[in-house]
Design a protein around this nucleic acid. Structure first.
Length: 490
RNA sequence: GGCGGCGUAGCCAAGUGGUAAGGCACUGGUCUGCAAAACCAUGAUUCAGCGGUUCAAAUCCGCUCGCCGCCUCCA
């Protein structure tokens, strides 16, 4: 049973059948680099990072191309405001983008081409379109004549008549048809320019992706991805350009992810209600953001809130605590003949975990369900761990360790559990401690005092020390191995 | 006006014809001197509402209500 993916083009789930067996060519529209990235950009990067990792886990080799738009109106405008040139501004925010991606642990794509490095390819493509009668020059601009592409609208599911009824399109005297879009714009004084057969100018937004996807992946490739807002006009126009030029289907499958909202409202630059990745990471662990993003299906809207991030953090802690328990099993004594604790039901559940995970992910990358399966595994592990005797059965230990490693590997596809569990918990403790009015030596001192009091069976004094710590945000846990402490959540 | 999506327990969220995963929160129990953590148990006779198809519907069809996105730069 092949992986099923929802295809925007056909509006349904379809089996993913690569053009070249065993290999997936993927092109994703990346950022326009003129500002810090917000968590909507993070969703895009994380969703496709997950998809690529899953495809590789399933045995495909993947060529993953993600571009940078490093020349565009917004970049020019922002650069002018800041009195720097456009390329300097673009480079600065590409650098900042990498800072964010590295903190999120996003793997680098195979190639990250930039628009400004592919001007020649774009010019060649525009010439090809003109030669085929699909584009025309008007003054110093070149436009795509959408009337020449009968299938225009097939990706976004709309037709020209409907769109004109909306009539939110500014009239441009140069265009033959109001919906024609620009392939090349003649430049105004002071703007970055490149020479072209139509005079000095710069490329329109859509042409870069057609030129670069074609250069690196060929006329036809497997998956083209991006945010839902790119469906129209960006991807619709890409289809017109690429398929107009090649006469072939450009991408078999189109994958579009949903938006991040804040207070149920789409987060966007124009609304000014966006949160940058670094603002979020100042308060939350990168993996908590990843877990949050994987907690719903990639096509659904996702509402960002403190509560949601706290929930995600609690879930991540639960996963790591389980991993820490598994790691500690190495110190545990075992014996071959010891009766096993694991019930038949739990054993069965744990043994089928990978199969269930795959089934969930094969169904259009259902990370929400996949996470549920991992948590279910954690529950079974904890249950067995709860009843493990001092000298455990070898079979129990083997089962726990095997499944623990499996959960870690599978969670890794979503970018989770990539840290050493003990380090994660220690770091977390240290970070949380920073915000509190107490230091670790003070806590350890208090624990020692309480221990002395308890040894003397002075429960009242022991409890008062514990309550005092709790008042400072420190929770104690007594166990056979001694007393440990954690920072109270919330 | 056109196109598309969504509405499942207090919150988040799977489930697209066979009798409601998982997480967070809450409550009771086990454990503990008392706690905490963990575990166990409990929670929707029900999936926005109303009708219809079916032996069977959260899942299919119709209508109603509510919310959201795209149609303009946008992940």
């Amino acid at each position: 049973m092949p992986i099923q993916t929802y295809n925007t083009l056909s509006r349904r789930k379809e089996p993913l059948v690569p053009i070249t067996s065993g290999h997936i060519n993927l092109y994703v529209c990346g950022i326009t680099s003129y500002d810090f990235c917000h968590i909507g950009h993070a969703r895009s990067a994380l969703v496709f990072d997950m998809i690529v990792r899953y495809l590789r886990y399933r045995g495909y080799t993947v060529t993953y191309i993600r571009n940078f738009t490093d020349i565009d109106d917004k970049i020019i405008k922002r650069a002018a405001e800041q009195n720097v040139d456009a390329s300097t501004l673009a480079q600065r925010f590409i650098d900042e983008f990498y800072v964010d991606m590295d903190r999120l642990g996003v793997d680098r794509p195979t190639l990250e081409p930039r628009a400004t490095e592919h001007i020649a390819e774009m010019i060649a493509l525009i010439e090809e379109l003109i030669a085929k009668g699909l584009a025309y020059q008007a003054g110093t601009d070149v436009y795509y004549a959408i009337n020449t592409f009968p299938q225009y609208g097939k990706l976004s599911g709309r037709n020209l008549d409907d769109m004109q009824a909306g009539a939110r399109i500014a009239i441009n005297e140069n265009k033959n048809h109001p919906m024609d879009f620009v392939l090349w714009k003649g430049s105004k004084p002071g703007e970055p320019t490149w020479d072209s057969p139509w005079g000095p100018g710069r490329p329109g937004w859509h042409i870069e992706c057609s030129a670069m996807s074609r250069k690196y992946l060929g006329d036809s490739f497997d998956i083209h991805g991006g945010g839902q807002d790119l469906v129209f006009p960006h991807h619709e126009n890409e289809v017109a350009q690429s398929e107009g030029a090649s006469g072939k289907c450009c991408a078999t499958t189109w994958i579009h992810h949903g938006f991040v909202t804040i207070r149920e409202e789409k987060m966007s630059k124009s609304l000014g209600n966006f949160l940058t990745i670094r603002e979020v990471l100042a308060h939350y662990h990168p993996e908590a953001l990843r877990l949050f993003i994987c907690s719903t299906h990639y096509r659904n809207p996702l509402d960002f809130s403190e509560t949601a991030m706290d929930d995600a953090t609690a879930g991540l802690d639960r996963l790591y605590e389980c991993m820490a328990f598994i790691d500690d099993l190495n110190k545990k004594e075992s014996r071959e003949g010891q009766a096993a604790i694991a019930s038949a039901n739990d054993t069965k559940k744990l043994q089928s975990l990978e199969e269930r995970f795959q089934k969930a992910m094969d169904d259009d990358f259902n990370t929400a369900l996949a996470l549920g399966i991992l948590f279910d595994g954690v529950k079974s592990i904890n249950k067995i761990g709860q009843h493990l005797p001092t000298t455990a059965a070898l079979s129990d230990l083997q089962l726990l360790k095997t499944v623990g490693k499996l959960i870690r590997d599978l969670a890794g596809i979503m970018g989770l559990l990539r840290k050493d569990a003990a380090s994660y918990l220690l770091e977390k403790k240290a970070t949380m401690l920073e915000g509190l009015d107490i230091t670790e030596p003070e806590i350890l001192e208090a624990i020692q005092q309480r221990k002395d009091a308890r040894t003397a069976k002075d429960w009242a004094r022991g409890d008062s020390i514990r309550d005092h710590l709790l008042g400072k945000g420190i929770e104690l846990k007594d166990s056979a191995q001694g007393t440990t402490w954690t920072v109270k959540r919330g």
